[in-house]
Amino acid sequence: MGTQRLEGKTALVTGGSRGIGRAIAERLARDGAVVALTYARDESAAHDVVERIRKDGGRAFALHAELGRHGDATALWSAFDAQISHHATDQAVDIIVNNAGIGRSADLALLTEAGFDEVFAVNVRAPFFIVQEGLKRLRDAGRIINISSGAAHLAMPEAIAYGATKSALDNFTLNLAKQLGARGITANSVAPGIIDTDVNAGWLRGNPEAEAHASSLAALGRVGRPEDVADIAAFLASDDARWVTGRTIDATGGSGL
């Protein structure tokens, strides 16, 4: 286990069964937090994360939560309430990480109304109401961490709606920071660039040309790893980041400089 600087804390990580979410869940658990991680479909992967955390001496449990539907936040928190007493001393939460999201987004000519609604429902509406419903459980001096994207600040016509959702998420972060600051709660976004996850595996892994191109976009000269983002999230979750709020932390390795 790590430094245990989150001992006594409880964290909720949405989309915690794979990729960046998995890395965040594992890192927060190493730092001592009880971690509730959600998954939409892959129950096996979620329980694999839980078992790995427990094997390493941490505490975690999985929650099934299909986001993007009306009532999803209420259902998620109800599931949290039903399980948390088995893992912590009360039903409060200290850290909310809105990581779950979808990247499917066509260009302006091909984007359908259904596709638009889906990406906004998962990437924007779900985090909004997860926080709204979670505030009654979120302790003072808590942390809200929204996983955004470098695409929020770049022109990417091929993923126009996706980029718009992440811009909206960053604005949500600003407003949360302003509204909740009196309670000592911080709200920040983390904006990754290209990360080597299952989402990007189809075009990135096993393709030297694609990897070389993706690496060339970053000033640091490589493709990002989930742990690169998780370590930033862990900093924001800790007391070390108590004076940082309303910020979007660039986690692109210097892409686009």
Rank of each mutant, 00 (worst) to 15 (best):
Gln4Ile: 07
Gln4Asn: 15
Gln4Arg: 14
Glu7Asp: 15
Glu7Asn: 15
Gly8Cys: 09
Gly15Arg: 04
Gly16Ala: 08
Ser17Ile: 07
Arg18Gly: 07
Ile24Glu: 05
Ala25Asn: 08
Leu28Tyr: 09
Ala36Ile: 10
Thr38Met: 07
Asp42Gln: 15
Asp42Phe: 09
Ala45Met: 08
Ala45His: 09
Asp48Phe: 02
Val49Tyr: 03
Glu51Tyr: 07
Arg54Met: 11
Ala60Ile: 03
Phe61Leu: 10
Phe61Glu: 04
Ala65Val: 08
Gly68Asp: 04
Arg69Ala: 14
Thr74Glu: 15
Ser78Val: 07
Ala79Cys: 04
Asp81Tyr: 13
Gln83Arg: 10
Ser85Gln: 11
His86Phe: 04
Thr89Lys: 09
Asp90Asn: 15
Ile95Asp: 08
Val97Arg: 01
Asn99Phe: 02
Ala100Lys: 00
Ala100Ser: 13
Asp107Tyr: 02
Ala114Lys: 15
Gly115Ser: 09
Val119Thr: 15
Val119Met: 04
Val119Asp: 00
Pro127Ser: 11
Phe128Ile: 10
Ile130Asn: 02
Gln132Thr: 02
Gly134Trp: 05
Arg139Tyr: 11
Asp140Ala: 12
Asp140Thr: 11
Ile145Ala: 03
Asn146His: 12
Ile147Asp: 01
Ser149Pro: 05
Gly150Arg: 11
Gly150Val: 10
Ala151Asp: 05
Ala152Asp: 01
Leu154Asn: 09
Met156Leu: 12
Ile160Ala: 10
Lys166Ile: 07
Ser167Leu: 11
Leu169Asn: 06
Asn171Lys: 13
Phe172Ala: 07
Leu174Phe: 10
Asn175His: 15
Leu176His: 09
Ile185Pro: 02
Ile185Asp: 05
Asn188Phe: 12
Val190Gly: 07
Pro192Ile: 02
Pro192Glu: 05
Ile194Thr: 14
Asn200Ala: 12
Asn200Trp: 05
Ala201Glu: 08
Gly202Ser: 06
Asn207Pro: 00
Glu209Pro: 06
Ala210Asp: 11
His213Val: 13
Ser215Leu: 08
Leu217Pro: 01
Ala218Asp: 11
Ala219Tyr: 06
Ala219Phe: 08
Val229Cys: 08
Ala230Ser: 13
Asp231Pro: 08
Asp231Glu: 15
Ala233Trp: 04
Phe235Glu: 05
Phe235Pro: 03
Asp240Ser: 09
Arg242Ile: 06
Arg242Pro: 06
Thr245His: 02
Gly246Trp: 02
Thr248Tyr: 01
Asp250His: 00
Ala251Arg: 04
Gly254Phe: 03
Gly256Ser: 00
Gly256Gln: 00
